[in-house]
Amino acid sequence: MNIVVDSGNTFSKIGWFEGKKLIRYTTHLEFPELIRQIRAELPEYLLFSSVGRTNEEFQTALSEPVNIIGLTPETPLPILKNYETPQTLGADRIAAAAGANFLFPDEDILVIDMGTCITYDIVDTSATFQGGLISPGVRMRFGAMHTFTKRLPLVEPEKEPELIGKSTRQAMQSGVMNGTLAEIEGIIERYRHNYPSLRVVLCGGDAAFFESSLKPPIFAVPELVLIGLNRILTYNVSLQ
């Protein structure tokens, strides 16, 4: 059994794999609970990806004899990177691209990851990460309207709001949610000019708000980042 860890600034996500198969996963773990769960069932190999902690800090906290691979810009990958600033490339973006290429090899893929920010990334038929674009996520958009105005409330996202809002809250819901939907549809269409057979894969915490509204074929793979991290892990194990 292998374990992959996607550790954010506050919470972590952990996935247990048997070979290529995701057995189970847990989200929203604080660091002490993450360590406790790993100690309860030590894996053969573990990949640790973090935006806030180093691999050395993680190894010290775990203090168990586990083969740990830390995901850094220098970690060997099963896909290529055609990116001018690889040192600044987020681990989630490259992991999602690796996961998409694993699930749909030999295809041009647009990965849309809907988290704090929305990232749109291309991995092409040559298994090369070509880059993409980053835009504000839905909660960031709601938060910006509340923060930078005097009277607009802080609103939580809702699924499929009416296009014409009849109150301020409804108008904000429509502006963010329908505006984000229009953004996604427009960007997919523009990418398809360059990649006519483009496959679109949707992931991230806010994907559920939009997957039923997008025109098919859109493939929703909620745990794409974990799948990609495991693909990177198994690739590195094969190099040993």
Rank of each mutant, 00 (worst) to 15 (best):
V5G: 05
M140H: 11
R53G: 12
V201Y: 09
F17N: 09
P65S: 10
V4C: 07
P136G: 02
T54A: 04
V237D: 02
A207L: 01
G70E: 00
D92P: 13
Q173T: 03
T60R: 14
H146D: 08
P161I: 04
G137M: 01
L214W: 02
W16H: 04
L47P: 07
Q130A: 13
I112S: 00
N236A: 12
I109R: 02
C117D: 11
V237N: 03
V123Q: 04
K215N: 14
V4E: 03
K159S: 14
Q37S: 13
S174Q: 07
T125N: 14
A96L: 06
V123G: 06
I112D: 00
G90P: 07
A100F: 04
A182T: 11
S167I: 07
Q170E: 13
Q37F: 08
K150P: 08
T125W: 14
S135V: 15
E211H: 10
Y195I: 09
P86G: 07
Y195R: 02
S7Y: 02
K81D: 06
T54K: 04
W16L: 05
Q240W: 15
N101G: 09
G90H: 09
S7P: 00
L233Q: 05
G186L: 05
K81N: 10
I232R: 04
M114Y: 09
M177D: 01
K166L: 15
P86L: 11
Q173Y: 00
G205F: 01
E189P: 04
N55P: 08
F11K: 02
P78S: 06
K159T: 13
K215A: 13
R53E: 13
E64T: 07
R93P: 02
N2W: 00
Q173L: 07
I109L: 10
Q87K: 15
T147P: 02
S49V: 01
R93L: 02
E74P: 02
T60W: 07
F148H: 09
